[in-house]
Amino acid sequence: MIQRFIELGEGYGDIFELCELARTNASRLDQTYIMYAKKNDKVVASLAISLKPVGDSKFMPIYLCREGIPYEDEKPSKRLDIFEQAMTELGHVPNRFEIKHSSIFSENNLYYQYLIGILRLNHYIPPMN
């Protein structure tokens, strides 16, 4: 199984696009994620969805809005609320966990390999064949 991240932006429009990708692919929606990372004493959230492969394909796309949402316990972000509401409508409860910030990795590919390792280790996505 090949899993690959497809990065969207971090604005409102990108969150709506991520939610619409989940809605239009509701039959393929596998898992949803809210991942928290800390940088310079600020916590940011990344939102992602993983879709089941199509037919006999061995490709599992993971769409991601990376680290663009400020996260504060006392004042939740509207973008986070939009995502959570859309996933609830689809019958999914996002998996929440803390990760390292992407800035500590020298390349985005290393960061994505790190994320795939975490997702596989926690059995959110299937192992390599």
Rank of each mutant, 00 (worst) to 15 (best):
M1A: 14
Q3M: 11
I6K: 04
I6F: 15
E7G: 06
G9T: 06
E10T: 15
G11C: 09
Y12F: 12
G13L: 08
I15F: 05
F16M: 15
E17W: 07
E17L: 14
L18N: 03
C19E: 09
A22Q: 14
T24I: 14
N25H: 15
S27W: 08
R28P: 06
D30C: 08
Q31R: 12
T32C: 13
Y33D: 13
M35Q: 10
Y36T: 01
Y36V: 03
Y36M: 09
A37N: 09
K38S: 02
N40T: 00
K42F: 12
V43M: 06
V43P: 03
V43I: 06
V44E: 06
V44C: 02
A45D: 04
A48R: 00
A48Y: 00
A48H: 02
I49R: 04
S50A: 12
K52Q: 06
D56M: 10
D56W: 01
D56G: 13
D56L: 10
D56H: 08
S57E: 10
K58M: 10
Y63I: 02
Y63R: 01
Y63T: 00
R66T: 06
R66G: 02
R66M: 14
E67S: 11
G68S: 08
Y71L: 04
Y71H: 13
E72I: 06
E74D: 15
E74G: 01
E74S: 14
K75Q: 15
K75D: 11
K75Y: 07
P76G: 03
K78G: 00
D81T: 13
D81F: 11
I82G: 01
I82Y: 03
I82D: 04
F83E: 00
E84P: 01
A86F: 01
M87I: 02
T88F: 04
T88L: 05
E89H: 02
E89D: 04
H92T: 06
V93S: 13
V93H: 02
V93R: 09
N95M: 10
F97T: 08
E98G: 03
I99K: 07
I99T: 09
S102D: 13
I104V: 15
F105L: 10
S106R: 13
N108V: 14
N109M: 12
L110I: 08
L110T: 04
Y111F: 15
Y111T: 12
Q113P: 01
Q113W: 06
Q113G: 04
Y114Q: 12
Y114H: 07
L115S: 10
L115K: 14
G117P: 05
L119W: 10
R120Q: 10
L121S: 06
L121N: 13
Y124E: 03
I125H: 07
I125D: 01
P126Y: 01
P127G: 00
P127R: 01
M128D: 02
N129T: 00
